[in-house]
Design a protein around this nucleic acid. Structure first.
Lengths: 342, 342
DNA sequence: ATTGGCACTTGCGGCGCTAGAGTGCCAGGT
DNA sequence: ACCTGGCACTCTAGCGCCGCAAGTGCCAAT
């Protein structure tokens, strides 16, 4: 694209991001940074429209950047604010210092995304079953129940109540626990299943019920930990172009049903090329042509991976939001590396 | 109030609940169940308006029940559908059968409230620390960490990673675990604190760090379990009178900030007189004069208490919603009594 | 006490108009 | 060859107006 066209597209986009209104040749000329008359600008605008970067809502309105227009801006024209990163790091350091658990950390990360961008923050963590068992412990709870605790790789901790086999003393239970621990330690999921099955067949331990419970656990992903944190939805509705009941409904539906978001989020998990932007209709979310999604993959130790980012209006300051999402993702990755329970 | 006035108020309310529109004397007369002419009805309506049960938006609109009008309806006129309860029980039995954890159960209850009423379901559980310890176990995780698991009364289970004291073998850790278990078993929170302090002072076990971690745990309420479940918000925006951006914002704010809701919810926790209804401005939520809240307290075994209910439009079918909330609360109470982990 | 009739009030939808904004194109200047 | 002022054209948003429909309050008659 000609340099002249780029300059004009850039100006149009940045004014549009500010105001959200169509921008006309007049204001563009008066704003002065181009040194061109309205008429000249009009010619270029017409060309840009022919190429699909601009769009007129109607004859007597100005031009609005299309999704492609914004895309071009984000890909080629945008300059990220350099000292943005420091500000972000600072804020993150301040607010995300020492969180007790992984869940708490992620929730706070989501809050932080929301408060930095003033849009909706989003943190997703891949639903993961225990992968490789580091430790298994059975703890007697009552005469009818026993608590199974599993510590898996990446310090994931999961627990579940199982039915206690009749006529098994605490003493015996402890022995079974030790035995199972030896049996299942360092096994991955498939191996755990196999060995449990084998154990059940021979049933030397006479605790078929218990083993069944364990097996069922390893079958189903642990659904008790919801895995999508969303913060600051309400801020979206402060943007006039999103404060439309139709859009509101769609947004709420997306947040509540989650499947649509998950599809998007999983796309990002595939390739790990930093921050990914979906502008307007680029994500396939229906009725949400006015929103953009900015996501990045993050990665904790062993088996913890996920995606985080923000959902905001199509006209967001990408040059601010992109580094925010990027930094937060890195930060979260770093924090997850530390000492954190699951 | 005169029987005639009651009948008319009742008719107005039930038409209003259906349509959401002001109801005029004409339709009321034509509807036929009163056997009176529009003129007569008008007289009574004027009287009802003077008493504050009705309100005209303007001269040429019909009458709309005020909050007091609806209140009177709910308190004195309403007849709850008798076989409603069966339907509800049935649906609950079907969907809430065996949930693995307390959290899962409560979340499902919230979903169920939402799907039965088509409004937003709400379940709150009182944030509670462990009360009386039934069992404490220390599990070695790595060379630097140890997992503490506490089983408390009511089968509440909580776990936390603590720093592992240096130079303590798995063997020793197990002994410490047994010792601590003996020491702290059956103690309430205050007693736990006291004994831990005492133990730290003498420090016979040489594991000050570990004890400190435990103590800090018992100080702070366990914040990692968020305690308010909300489902089906989006359904609210299908009601035309709530699909107003102003109201949407307020609703979202209430759901996100939670303090306002908690204040309401705690009011209900105080007295346990079954279902409680807040109509329109009766709850002090700003900008939400168009919504009503129906809540009931529920109660699990030992120390688990909470409030659940729905948030819906002011014009909801109270005669349907009240039994739904009531039954769900009883049901949840019953289920919590069963075998469920925390 | 009830009711039909009538005058009065009020919001709402449709219509036409104007002002303002912005464009496209052309002809003339550099 | 490119830029620019000018002009005719188009479209929308806002305003005022009007008439319709709905509903009321009151009164006189039953």
């Amino acid at each position: 694209m000609k340099e002249r066209q780029e300059r004009i597209l850039g100006e149009i986009v940045s004014i549009y991001l500010e105001t959200g209104q169509p921008v006309g040749s007049r204001v563009l000329a008066e704003q002065g940074r181009l040194g061109l008359s309205p008429a000249s600008i009009r010619n270029v605008m017409a060309e840009l429209e022919r190429r699909g970067y601009l769009h007129s809502p109607h004859t007597s309105a100005g031009r609005v950047p299309t999704d492609s227009g914004l895309r071009y801006f984000v890909d080629s024209l945008m300059v990220v604010d350099a000292n943005m990163r420091d500000t972000i790091e600072q804020s993150l350091t301040q607010h995300l210092q020492d969180e007790a658990s992984k869940r708490a950390l992620l929730r706070r990360a989501s809050d932080e995304l929301a408060s930095l961008t003033h849009f909706a923050g989003l943190v997703w963590v891949r639903e993961s079953n225990f992968s490789r068992i580091l430790r298994l412990e059975l703890i007697p709870v009552s005469s009818s129940q026993v608590l199974a605790v599993i510590v898996a790789e990446g310090n994931q901790i999961q627990n579940r109540l199982l039915q206690r086999p009749a006529h098994v003393s605490d003493e015996q239970l402890h022995r079974i626990s030790v035995r199972l621990n030896e049996l299942l330690c360092d096994c991955d999921l498939a191996e755990v299943q196999r060995r449990l099955q084998h154990e059940m067949d021979s049933d030397r331990l006479q605790v078929r019920k218990l083993l069944e419970g364990l097996k069922r656990w390893s079958d189903a992903p642990n659904e008790s930990q919801s895995d999508l944190f969303v913060s600051g939805q309400r801020q979206l509705f402060d943007m006039p172009e999103l404060a439309v009941i139709e859009t509101v409904r769609s947004l709420m539906a997306a947040f509540e049903e989650k499947e649509q978001l998950l599809r998007l989020v999983e796309q990002v998990e595939q390739d790990d090329t930093g921050v990914k932007v979906f502008i307007g209709s680029e994500h396939a979310l229906v009725n949400m042509e006015q929103v953009s999604v900015v996501l990045s993959r993050y990665e904790g130790p062993e088996n913890i991976v996920g995606t985080l980012g923000v959902i905001g209006p199509r006209r967001m300051h990408y040059e601010r939001v992109l580094p925010i999402v990027d930094c937060t993702a890195r930060w979260v990755s770093r924090m997850l590396g530390g000492n954190i329970d699951g």
